[in-house]
C-alpha cells in the first residue's frame, strides 16, 4: 500500500511566471526509502510542503496515508516528521530543553529518560545541558533529526540531513535512518551527497524545473544509464553540466 501518492500535481505561486511543480505523479510505498533529488529550486521543497498540507496544490491529487493533506493537514502532520535543511532549533535553550519544549508542542509529556536515551543514541547526552548555540554543526544536525522524530512518525522527510556535518555525525544519522526503516518507517531523503543516496535509498526520483524527469530503482537507473554513479545519471537526464 502506498504511503504517498501524487497524481498530476501542479503548483504555481502567485506572481510566478512558471509552476514550481508541474504534473508531478509519484507513489511511495510504506516502508520505502525514496531519494528525491534535484538542484535548488527544482520543486522538492514545494512538493514536501504539499505533502504536509502546508501548501495547497493548484491541480491534481495528493494522498498521504489515504488522506488529502489539504483537508486533513493536522492528521497528516501528526504522522509525518520533517527535518528541514535549516536548523530549526532554539539556540538559547539547551539540547534537552529544546526536546522538552518540542515534546510539549507535539502534545506529549516529556520523558527525560527517553529523551536522554535518544540523545545518547546520537552521542549528545554529555552536551544535553549545554545551549544549542554552543553546538557544532554536526551536533545541531543530529539534534535537529531527533527533534523531528519525537512523535514517532510513520513518514520521515529529510532535507539535506547531513549537510556540513563531520563523518562521525553522518555515520550516526545514516545508521539511525536504516534502523528506523527496518522498523517500518517510510523515508523521503533529499541530499546533494549522491553516494549516500545510493547506499540508503531503494528508489530515487530526479526533479528539474518542477518536473519529475526520471525515477526508478537505484540499481535499475545505474544499469539503464550504463554508469556506476547517480551523479552521472542526473547529469545525463537533466542535461546539466553542473554538480548537484
Amino acid at each position: 500500500m502506498a504511503a504517498i501518492t501524487l497524481d498530476k500535481v501542479t503548483k504555481q505561486y502567485a506572481g510566478s511566471p512558471k509552476p514550481a511543480v508541474r504534473d508531478l505523479s509519484l507513489a511511495i510505498a510504506r516502508g520505502e526509502v525514496y531519494g528525491l533529488l534535484g538542484h535548488n529550486g527544482a520543486g522538492k521543497s514545494t512538493t514536501v510542503m504539499m505533502i504536509c498540507g502546508l501548501l495547497q496544490a493548484g491541480s491534481g491529487a495528493i494522498s498521504v496515508f489515504g488522506m488529502n493533506p489539504a483537508q486533513h493537514g493536522p492528521s497528516v502532520r501528526s504522522r509525518v516528521g520533517v527535518a528541514t535543511q535549516d536548523i530549526a532549533l532554539f539556540p538559547s535553550l539547551t539540547g534537552m530543553e529544546n526536546l522538552q519544549y518540542l515534546c510539549r508542542m507535539y502534545g506529549l509529556k516529556p520523558d527525560s529518560h527517553q529523551l536522554m536515551a535518544l540523545l545518547e543514541r546520537f552521542g549528545l547526552s554529555a552536551d544535553a545541558g549545554k545551549k544549542v548555540d554552543s553546538y557544532s554543526g554536526g551536533m545541531k544536525r543530529r539534534l535537529n533529526l531527533i527533534a523531528s522524530v519525537l512523535h514517532d512518525p510513520e513518514l520521515l522527510i529529510l532535507d539535506e540531513p547531513t549537510a556540513g556535518v563531520d563523518v562521525q555525525s553522518r555515520a550516526m544519522i545514516i545508521a539511525y535512518l536504516r534502523e528506523m526503516n527496518t522498523k517500518g518507517m517510510t523515508i523521503i531523503y533529499s541530499s546533494h551527497i549522491l553516494e549516500e543516496v545510493e547506499k540508503l535509498c531503494q528508489r530515487v526520483g530526479f526533479m528539474s524545473e518542477g518536473v519529475l524527469i526520471e525515477q526508478g530503482l537505484t540499481a535499475d537507473l545505474l544499469a539503464k544509464y550504463h554508469t556506476d554513479s547517480l551523479e552521472s545519471v542526473y547529469l545525463t537526464v537533466s542535461g546539466k553540466s553542473i554538480s548537484i
Binding site: G73, S75, R77, S78, T84, D86, I87, A88, Y106
Partner: peptide, 21 residues
C-alpha cells in the same frame, strides 16, 4: 529570526501547535 531559521516552519509542521506558539 525564528521564521528565518526555520523554527516557525517547524511549528507549522507540528500539528496544532502554530496557534499556541
Amino acid at each position: 529570526k525564528e521564521r528565518e531559521d526555520g523554527s516557525l516552519l517547524r511549528m507549522r509542521l507540528i500539528a496544532g501547535s502554530r496557534f499556541h506558539f
